[in-house]
Simulated scan of single mutants.
Amino acid sequence: MRVGLITPRPDHPLLAATTALLTPRHTVEWIDPADAAAQRIPDTPADVYLLKARTAPALALARALEERGAPVVNSSSATAFCQDRTRMAELAVSAGLPFARSTTVAKLRQLTAEPGLRYPLVVKSRHSRRGDLIARIDDAGRLHDLCGQWADEPVVVQPYTANDGWDRKLWVIGRQVFAALRRSELAGDPTAGRETVSLALRELPKGWLEMARGIGPLFGLEVYGVDLIDAGGDSPRIVDVNAFPGVRGQMGAPEALTALALRTAEEKGGGRVGLRAAGPPFT
């Protein structure tokens, strides 16, 4: 099999470990979507592509490969959809998932004119990307400070849900789930985002595991992450869904990704002429 990696970082731990598992019997090809020369679609596409990057060039490249019939994990349409936090929240809520209540505001500075704004609240860039805005706002002073840099940023606004300061990170590859606790970026702790504690699946509250698995088909994703908080009494509150996360340090993740890549190549990679990779049902 030929497996293509669409990423500027083939040395990412998950991808590097997956490559090591594949290369004894299969060929792994790396495409840097930022490289203009890489935008030329090969005459014979690989049997499957893993879309780790989420930039506009990466999505355009993935779309072009799909138009040639090459299967891409995750599809370009599903990946792009999850970058829009407004659409993500709307779909999750319409499906009955316990997603954080979200309101979209065209520009962050518009919040300064909102009468009776209730703090604390959480603001996030509407469009997910590296270096985007994610912040907890406890008062008007903090809001004005953020407007100094982000005044014209389209944002989603969510009420802050009191919790224990730990995000529950659930990562799904195919049907296999991996879990960890990570200090929340909104907990006001300088170690936030760095301290991660592995979590056995048996430690998850009842229903969380199957809920996480059900999100994949809903969003058209095969490799994805679900960020939750415990809103009290093991009641989940989903705060984010992201396509192809890093899944760092999770034993068995490279093996799961390897199996998914080969299975996708076998099931969807043959007879590519005239075929398009399946996208999520909402496109």
Rank of each mutant, 00 (worst) to 15 (best):
M1W: 06
R9M: 06
R9P: 03
P13I: 00
L14G: 00
A17R: 06
L21W: 05
L22M: 11
R25G: 11
H26W: 08
T27V: 15
W30N: 11
D32S: 07
P33N: 07
P33L: 07
I41G: 05
T44M: 05
T44N: 09
T44Y: 04
D47R: 00
Y49H: 05
T55H: 09
T55D: 02
A58L: 04
A60W: 09
L61S: 04
A64S: 12
E66R: 03
G69F: 07
N74I: 04
N74S: 06
S77L: 12
S77C: 13
A80T: 08
F81N: 10
T86K: 12
T86R: 10
E90A: 13
G96Q: 09
L97H: 07
P98I: 02
P98K: 07
A100G: 02
V105I: 10
A106V: 09
K107M: 06
K107H: 08
R109H: 07
L111W: 01
L111T: 02
Y119T: 11
P120N: 05
V122F: 01
S125P: 10
S125N: 09
H127K: 15
S128Y: 12
S128G: 14
R130Y: 12
G131E: 11
I134K: 10
I137E: 00
I137Q: 02
Q149N: 15
Q149P: 15
Q158I: 13
Q158M: 12
A162H: 14
N163K: 12
K169R: 15
W171E: 04
G174V: 03
Q176F: 07
A179H: 02
R182Q: 08
R183M: 13
L186T: 04
L186Q: 00
A187T: 04
A187D: 02
P190Q: 08
P190Y: 05
T191I: 10
G207N: 05
W208E: 01
L209V: 10
I215R: 02
F219N: 03
E222M: 08
E222P: 03
V223G: 01
D234R: 10
S235A: 15
S235P: 04
P236I: 05
R237C: 12
V239F: 08
V241P: 00
A243C: 09
V247D: 00
V247C: 03
R248T: 08
P254G: 04
L260S: 04
E266S: 04
K268D: 14
G270P: 12
G271K: 02
V273S: 14
L275C: 13
R276E: 14
R276V: 14
R276S: 14
A277F: 13
A277I: 11
A277E: 12
P280A: 14
F282W: 15
F282M: 13
F282P: 06
